[in-house]
């Protein structure tokens, strides 16, 4: 299941999230959102460590971050 969820319609393509991801897994998609920006996305969700750096720096509150609850398989 996805750990980082992007509300891509809100994204302005500023790439600040890209610059802070310690795993380097955020990339800019090829498609434009309705505001005309290339939105950020994460394909390799399994590599995400749920550090939320991306969400912290995102000026537009595009990103929600989840982590696996300890001891449970979700």
């Amino acid at each position: 299941m996805a750990k980082v969820i992007f509300d891509s319609e809100r994204c302005k393509g500023c790439e600040l999230c890209v610059s802070v991801c310690p795993r380097g897994i955020i990339r800019m998609s090829n498609t434009l959102n309705s505001q005309g920006y290339h939105s950020a996305e994460v394909v390799e969700q399994d590599k995400c460590i749920s550090c939320a750096f991306c969400a912290r720096i995102c000026p537009d509150t595009v990103i929600e971050v989840y982590r696996e609850t300890k001891g449970k398989v979700s």
Binding site: M1, K3, R10, K12, G13, C14, E15, L16, Y37, S50, A52, A55, R56, I57, C58, P59, D60, T61, I63, E64, V65, Y66, R67, E68, T69, S74
Partner: peptide, 29 residues
């Protein structure tokens, strides 16, 4: 899964008019 980061309640759903990457948005949050 548990949420570690989401939209705060006191922040509205409105899309910000700030330029891409302007840190006003971070500070609002």
């Amino acid at each position: 899964m548990e949420q570690v980061f989401g939209r705060p309640k006191a922040l509205s759903e409105k899309r910000l008019h700030y330029c891409p990457g302007c840190t006003h948005g971070i500070i609002h949050r």
